[in-house]
């Protein structure tokens, strides 16, 4: 296989290891944190379970946005919709 300048989605996420990332879930939940790692099973089946550190969890509830700080989490990849490198989060 020849190398192209096309960047695969997984490679992009791989480059984010050690940096802040913003994770948007299918439901009204978002996370920001430093991406520590993820398993590399086939990408199209499931977004990876990932380890995040120095996490802020954002929940949009009828009463407004609630945030929770967490040291380190293993996030289930099943309900991830979107990953945004940089990770300013919804409050920027």
């Amino acid at each position: 296989m020849s190398t192209t300048n096309q960047l695969l989605p997984l490679e992009l996420i791989d480059k984010c290891i050690g940096s802040k990332i913003w994770v948007i879930m299918k439901s009204e939940k978002e996370f920001t944190g430093i991406l520590r790692g993820f398993d590399d099973y086939p990408f199209p089946i499931k977004l990876q379970d990932m380890v995040l550190e120095d996490v802020i969890e954002y929940e949009n509830t009828p009463e407004g946005r609630k945030t929770t700080k967490l040291e380190q989490i293993l996030l289930n990849g099943n309900n991830i919709t979107m990953l945004i490198p940089g990770g300013e989060g919804p409050e920027s």
């Binding site: 939940k29 967490l70 380190q72 989490i73 293993l74 996030l75 289930n76 309900n79």
Partner: peptide, 9 residues
């Protein structure tokens, strides 16, 4: 499961 957290907070 959404996440597992090691925190004790």
């Amino acid at each position: 499961v959404l996440y597992i957290s090691a925190t004790k907070l």
